[in-house]
Nucleic acid binder design. Structure first.
Length: 802
RNA sequence: GCGGGUAUGGCGGAAUAGGUAGACGCAACGGACUUAAAAUCCGUCGGCGGCGACGCCGUGCCGGUUCGAGUCCGGCUACCCGCACCA
C-alpha cells in the first residue's frame, strides 16, 4: 500500500536537503562547460510574490535543471532589485526606514521563492542596496563620468505641485499626479544625464550578433529610431544668417514651399524685432508651452501655427524666397528644431499647407498631390526639380546630397529618436552619485578608493519643498572637501534611478563577493555572456537597452570580455486573472501563489504555470486547470501501484518511451512546456491503459518530469532508485531509429477528401500501398478514371479521379 | 496614424517541412465502485442530417495557388500590447 501524495510534507523536506547539500551551487571549476541561465531579479515589493513571477522562473529553472543533468556547470542566480520609489513611499507613510522595509520584503520574497523549489544558487544572492554591491554601481558611474558619458544639464522635469516632487513619466497619468491627482507642471531642474545616444549605432548593430526573439529586436530598433537624411542650411533673406533643418527627404527640396520652426526655436527671439506679428507669435508659443504632453497628443489631429511675418528664407535649390512659420508639430528636441516643409510629399506638411493655403508643388510623380501627400519612395521619378528631373528617388537623394555638400549648403546626417538617459532622482532610496561640486574645480569625481559612498541615515526622508533630494537637508553629509583642491565642496544630493543597479547585476553574479573589482576577469571570461536571459516585454526598451549600453561601455574600457551581455533573449506572456483581465487589487482578481502552494503544492503550481498555454502569450488563470495538473501528479504518484521489476522498457512501450524523450527534450529547449507536459500526460495514460510500468520506464518518466515537478520526482526517486538523488542523474537519451513506429496509419483521400484510413508497414513499397488503397476504396472507384496517384510515405494516399 | 501580436469546440489550447483539424487538459454527460456523496477508474464529447455503415459543413471574413490550405499568396475585419506629429 503506497502512501498518499502529500506535497505539503515532501516539498519542505527536499528544499532543506537541496539547501544542505548545496545541490545547485555553480562551481568554480572553469574546465567544465558552462551554462548561464538568467531571469530578471524582482523588485521586492510589499505585496509579495505574484503568480506572474513563477512563470519565467519555472521556465528557466527547467532549462537549468536539464542542463545540469546534461553535464554543464550551471549558473542560475537570484537577487533583489531593491532600490526604488514604492519602498520609499511606504517608508514615508509608515515611518519605517526603507532599509528595514527592504529587509522585510526580501525575507518574505525569498521565503516564497524557496517554497517553490527553484534551483537558484543562493550562495550568489545579491542585493542592489547592499553597499558592497552599489560600490560597483558607483564605480561604473565614475568611469562613465571620466569618459565624458555622464554630464549635468538643465532640463524640464515633471513636478507635482502638491507632493512637491519630481515624477517619472510613468507616474504622470493624463497630466495628473498618479498618487494625489494634482496638476503636474514642467519645471526646469539640473539633472545628471548619461550619453546613451553615443552608443545608438552600436546598440542597433549589435542586435545582428545575438539570438533575441524577433519582436524584441524590432522594438529596440524602433525605440532607438535611426534615420538617415541630411542637414541643409536655408539662408535668410536680407541676412547672412542661416536656418539649419534636418530632413530624410533631401530629394524633395525643390518642393519645399515654406519652413517651420518649433515654437521654442531660438531663432524666433533672435529676430523678434524683424517679426511684424511678434505678439501673436509669443502668444502662440505660450499656449504651446502650457499644453501638457497629453494635450499635445490629444490635439495632434488638428494642425496649428503662426507665420513669422516679415521673415523669408531662400530655398537653396530654387533660389526663391519662401515663408517661415512656427508650429508645435515641429519638436525642438529632434533634429534641429526646424524643417523644410514639402507638402506634396509629407503628410503633416500637406495637412498644414491645406489648412493655411500654402502652395503644394509636386516633385515626385506618381500621385495626385492636391488630394493627398505622395510619400512612396519606391516608385516615381523626380519632376519640377531642375537637375534632379527624371531620377529615381534613391538616386536623387545621392545626387542632391553631393550637390549640397559641394556647395557647402549641407551634408548627410544620421538622427536618432533615442534621447540621453535622465539619470538623476531627487530621492533618498537610491545609490548616491559619487560626485562633489567645488566652487573652484566644478564637478569632481570621488577617488575610487573612497567608494562605496554610503547612503547616510537621514532623520527624515520626506521630499523637500524645493525639489531637492532629502539628502540635501543633511548638511553634515553634504558639506565636504574637494578631492581636487581640498577646498570646501558639496556632495551631489541626487541619487541614481532604479535602472542603475539592474544595468550590470548579471556581471556581479559571476563573482558576487569580490571586493577588488565588480567581478574578476577570470570569472567574467568564463561565465559571460549570459547564455539565456528571459524577461518581460515591458523591459525591452528600458532595462534591456540600458544594460546593453552599460555592458558595451564596460567592454570598450576593457572590463568585460564580450560586446553583448546576453546571447539569447526570450520573453514570457503575462498571467491574467480568471476573467481574462490584468490581475490587480482593484479588479479583485489577484491570485496569491502562497495559497496555491498551500492547497495544491509547489509542484502543481509549477506544472500548471507551464501547462497554461504558449509561454510567450498571455494566459488567463484557471483554478480548475490547477486541479487538473494536481490530478496528473497524483496519477504519476500512483504509478507506484503498477510498478514491475523489469529494468528495461517493455516491448509495447519502447517506441513510446523514445518518442516521449525526444518530444520532451526538444520542447523544453523551444519553450514549448505545455506540449512537453501533454506528452508526459499521454505517456502516463498509456501506462494506465497497460496496467503496468517497468522500473526503467518509471525512472525515465521521473527524470523527464523532474525539472517541472522536482520535489515529487525526487521523493519517488528516493523511494525506488535511491540512495542517489534524481538531480544527480543524467538526462535520458533516445534512439532516433526507435522513435519510428513499425506500422503507420495513413489517410486515404480521393480528390483531397478523406475517404478512410489504411494501416501499413512503415516502409511498404509505393506499389503495394497504392494497391491496398485501391482495394480499400474499390467500391468508390467503380466507373471513375484515376488521373493521378499521390503517395506521401507515412502521411496519405490521394487519388485524383474523374 | 505607425510598429508588433492574436483570431481554431462550451473553455485553456495542440497540429514538425502544406498531407487524417481539435493532441493534452478543463467543463459536461454516461458507466463501474459506494448505503450515499466525494475521490478514483473506464468511456463519450465540433455542428447538421440519418436507426445505421455513412454524408455534408467546419480553423475571424472575401478571393487565389495546389491533387490537397488552420498552415502559402492577395485583400479585409475585430481585439490586445507598444509608440505616438521623430520631418
Amino acid at each position: 500500500m503506497i502512501t498518499a501524495y502529500e506535497p505539503q510534507k515532501i516539498e519542505p523536506k527536499w528544499q532543506k536537503i537541496w539547501n544542505d547539500e548545496k545541490a545547485f551551487a555553480a562551481t568554480n571549476d572553469y574546465s567544465k562547460p558552462k551554462y548561464y541561465a538568467l531571469v530578471e531579479f524582482p523588485y521586492p515589493s510589499g505585496q509579495g510574490l505574484h503568480v506572474g513571477h513563477p512563470r519565467p522562473y519555472t521556465a528557466l529553472d527547467i532549462v537549468a535543471r536539464k542542463r545540469r543533468m546534461e553535464g554543464y556547470n550551471v549558473l542560475y542566480p537570484m537577487g533583489w532589485d531593491a532600490f526604488g520609489l514604492p519602498t520609499e513611499n511606504y517608508a514615508i507613510k509608515n515611518h519605517i526606514h526603507p532599509r528595514i522595509v527592504t529587509e522585510r520584503n526580501v525575507a518574505h520574497f525569498k521565503n516564497q521563492l524557496q517554497s517553490l523549489g527553484y534551483s537558484f544558487d543562493w550562495d550568489r544572492e545579491i542585493n542592489t542596496t547592499d553597499p558592497n554591491y552599489y560600490h560597483w554601481t558607483q564605480w561604473i558611474f565614475l568611469k562613465l563620468f571620466k569618459t565624458g558619458l555622464a554630464y549635468k544639464t538643465e532640463m524640464p522635469i515633471n513636478w507635482c505641485t502638491s507632493c512637491k516632487v519630481g515624477l517619472a513619466n510613468e507616474e504622470v497619468v493624463n497630466g495628473k499626479c498618479e498618487r494625489c491627482g494634482s496638476d503636474v507642471i514642467r519645471r526646469m531642474q539640473t539633472q545628471w544625464m548619461l550619453k546613451i545616444t553615443a552608443y545608438a549605432d552600436k546598440l542597433i548593430d549589435g542586435l545582428d550578433s545575438v539570438d533575441y526573439i524577433e519582436r524584441v529586436k524590432v522594438s529596440q530598433k524602433n525605440w532607438i529610431g535611426r534615420s538617415t537624411g541630411a542637414e541643409v542650411d536655408f539662408s535668410l533673406e536680407d541676412s547672412e544668417d542661416k536656418l539649419r533643418i534636418y530632413t530624410t527627404r533631401p530629394d524633395t527640396i525643390f518642393g519645399a514651399t515654406y519652413m517651420v520652426v518649433s515654437p521654442e526655436h531660438p531663432f524666433i527671439e533672435k529676430y523678434a524685432d524683424r517679426i511684424e506679428n511678434m505678439d501673436e507669435v509669443r502668444a502662440y508659443r505660450e499656449a504651446a508651452a502650457k499644453k501638457s504632453d497629453f494635450e499635445r497628443s490629444e490635439l495632434a489631429k488638428e494642425k496649428t501655427g503662426v507665420e513669422l511675418k516679415g521673415l523669408h528664407a531662400i530655398n537653396p535649390a530654387t533660389g526663391k524666397p519662401i515663408p517661415i512659420w512656427t508650429s508645435d508639430y515641429v519638436l525642438m528636441s529632434y533634429g534641429t528644431g526646424a524643417i523644410m516643409a514639402v507638402p506634396a510629399h509629407d503628410e503633416r506638411d500637406w495637412e498644414f499647407a491645406k489648412k493655411f493655403a500654402l502652395p503644394i508643388i509636386e516633385v515626385v510623380a506618381g500621385g495626385n498631390v492636391q488630394e493627398a501627400a505622395f510619400t512612396d519612395v519606391a516608385s516615381g521619378k523626380m519632376v519640377n526639380s531642375g537637375f534632379l528631373n527624371g531620377l529615381e528617388v534613391a538616386d536623387a537623394k545621392k545626387t542632391i546630397i553631393d550637390w549640397l555638400t559641394e556647395k557647402g549648403l549641407g551634408q548627410a546626417k544620421v538622427n536618432f529618436k533615442l534621447r540621453d538617459w535622465v539619470f538623476s532622482r531627487q530621492r533618498y532610496w537610491g545609490e548616491p552619485i559619487p560626485i562633489v561640486k567645488c566652487e573652484k574645480c566644478g564637478y569632481v569625481p570621488l577617488p575610487e578608493e573612497e567608494l562605496p559612498l554610503l547612503l547616510p541615515d537621514v532623520e527624515s526622508y520626506m521630499p523637500t519643498d524645493n525639489g531637492e533630494s532629502p539628502l540635501a537637508a543633511m548638511t553634515d553629509w553634504v558639506n565636504t572637501t574637494c578631492p581636487c583642491c581640498g577646498g570646501p565642496a558639496k556632495r551631489e544630493t541626487d541619487t541614481m534611478p532604479q535602472w542603475a543597479g539592474s544595468s550590470w547585476y548579471f556581471l556581479r553574479y559571476t563573482d558576487p563577493l569580490n571586493d577588488k573589482a565588480l567581478a574578476s576577469p577570470e570569472a567574467l571570461k568564463y561565465w559571460m555572456p549570459v547564455d539565456w536571459y528571459n524577461g518581460g516585454m515591458e523591459h525591452t526598451t528600458l532595462h534591456l537597452l540600458y544594460s546593453r549600453f552599460w555592458h558595451k561601455f564596460l567592454y570598450d574600457i576593457g572590463v568585460v570580455p564580450c560586446p553583448e551581455p546576453y546571447q539569447k533573449r526570450t520573453s514570457h506572456g503575462m498571467i491574467l486573472g480568471e476573467n481574462g483581465e490584468k490581475m490587480s487589487k482593484s479588479r479583485g482578481n489577484v491570485v496569491n501563489p502562497d495559497d496555491i502552494v498551500r492547497e495544491f503544492g509547489a509542484d502543481t503550481l509549477r506544472t500548471y504555470e507551464m501547462f497554461i498555454g504558449a509561454f510567450e502569450l498571455a494566459a488567463a488563470w484557471s483554478t480548475e486547470g490547477v486541479k487538473g495538473c494536481r490530478k496528473f501528479l497524483e496519477r504519476v504518484w500512483k504509478l507506484q501501484d503498477m510498478l514491475t521489476d523489469e529494468d528495461s522498457y517493455s516491448a509495447a512501450m519502447e517506441t513510446r518511451m523514445h518518442q516521449t524523450i525526444k518530444k520532451v527534450s526538444g520542447d523544453f529547449e523551444s519553450l514549448k512546456f505545455n506540449t512537453a507536459i501533454a506528452a508526459m500526460m499521454s505517456l502516463v495514460n498509456d501506462f494506465y491503459r497497460a496496467g503496468k510500468v517497468t522500473r526503467a520506464e518509471f525512472s525515465t518518466l521521473l527524470i523527464l518530469l523532474n525539472p517541472v515537478a522536482p520535489h515529487m520526482t525526487e521523493e519517488l526517486w528516493a523511494l525506488y532508485f535511491g540512495p542517489s538523488r534524481i538531480y544527480q542523474q543524467s538526462w535520458p537519451q533516445y534512439d532516433e531509429a526507435k522513435t519510428v513506429e513499425q506500422t503507420v496509419e495513413i489517410a486515404l483521400q480521393m480528390n483531397g477528401k478523406m475517404r478512410g484510413t489504411l494501416v501499413i508497414e512503415k516502409d511498404a513499397p509505393k506499389d503495394e500501398v497504392l494497391a491496398k488503397a485501391k482495394e480499400a476504396l474499390a467500391a468508390r472507384l467503380d466507373g471513375v478514371t484515376i488521373l493521378k496517384e499521390i503517395y506521401i510515405p507515412g502521411r496519405i494516399v490521394n487519388l485524383v479521379v474523374r
